[in-house]
Amino acid sequence: MKISNGSRQRLKASDFDDVTKDLLATAISIYRCLIVTRVPFPQTLIVEMKIAKEAWREASNLADLTVQLTPSLVKMMTRRTSHVRGELKTKMRALTSSHFGFRTSRSTAAIKQNRDLAESLKDESRFVFKDWEMKSGIYKTELIQAAVNDMWFANRNDEGVIHGRYFEPLPVEIIALILTAIECCIDEWITGVKEDIKFSSNAYSSVYVGHLSSLQRFDERTSAYKLLGKIADNILDVARLHAGVDSFQATHATPFGFTDNIFDDVIREYEAETREAAAVARESHKVMDD
């Protein structure tokens, strides 16, 4: 390893020799994947260091190299924790604004409309639904798919493809992180005029925990139908297609908690869809028999 311009300077990847630099690039990519799929808001540096060590070990195995992991290299990786969250938030800002119809106008009417819209979306976490006004299609908002596509499956060389094993099956943690980022983007419109809100751990780790808890309860409540798994599998299949990869080839508010009746509604929706599909199939067979 070489250090230039004095050890007190902020380290950059270029400060290391070529072998270490290449290995670090792979380790950083793996670290980013491990963070978003396991602990997007790690509460201690120890957690981040453990993930950094795992990422370095995996990168070393891939390259069939043995390079000592130094505190400087660990620091280069752990810096990426907030970076990867910030990258997701930046990508979601325009998508969220366009999807829900927030307006940049400074007119009194537009400001009121934006404020009312933001409050409605945050009320009982309506924004997680495909139809947020009717509260149907829980966890099927198109924004989740857009986030996965743009953030990890933009093309064949993106992290979701290269490091696909961390995304299969799609972890519930990554869905919770996306929902938290969407909520942060909505919060930016809560006054009616868009303002930048930092997607920090202090402000949004509790929001993340709330979404994660609701997702886990949804999974438990609908376990007989494996609905969350089916939602996640569909998101992953579409993301792979978006990346140009055949799915068979790729290996600041108090968080709202959904009541069980919301999950019961989803079960009824699923059962109704199943009955309708069966009826259509029976009718088709009847026509063929006639």
Rank of each mutant, 00 (worst) to 15 (best):
H252M: 10
V287D: 08
A277K: 10
A239L: 10
F256C: 07
E283T: 09
V148Q: 00
D219A: 06
A272V: 03
F256G: 04
E183P: 10
F41T: 14
R268I: 00
S107L: 00
E271R: 12
D150G: 09
A224Y: 07
S247L: 12
I186R: 00
M151I: 11
E58S: 01
I3K: 13
Q68R: 09
I186P: 03
D246C: 11
E142D: 12
I231T: 12
D15E: 06
D131A: 07
C185N: 09
F100A: 05
N5M: 04
A224S: 14
R282P: 03
N149Y: 11
P71N: 01
L236T: 03
A55W: 02
S4N: 13
D289C: 08
L23C: 09
L241C: 14
M92K: 04
M134E: 13
F258S: 00
F129C: 03
Y204V: 05
D264Q: 05
R275S: 08
I28F: 05
S82D: 14
A27F: 02
D15R: 14
D18S: 12
K198Q: 13
K286N: 10
A253C: 05
L62A: 07
M1H: 14
A146T: 09
L179S: 06
V193N: 00
T254G: 10
R93S: 12
V207R: 08
D116A: 05
V209Y: 06
F263L: 01
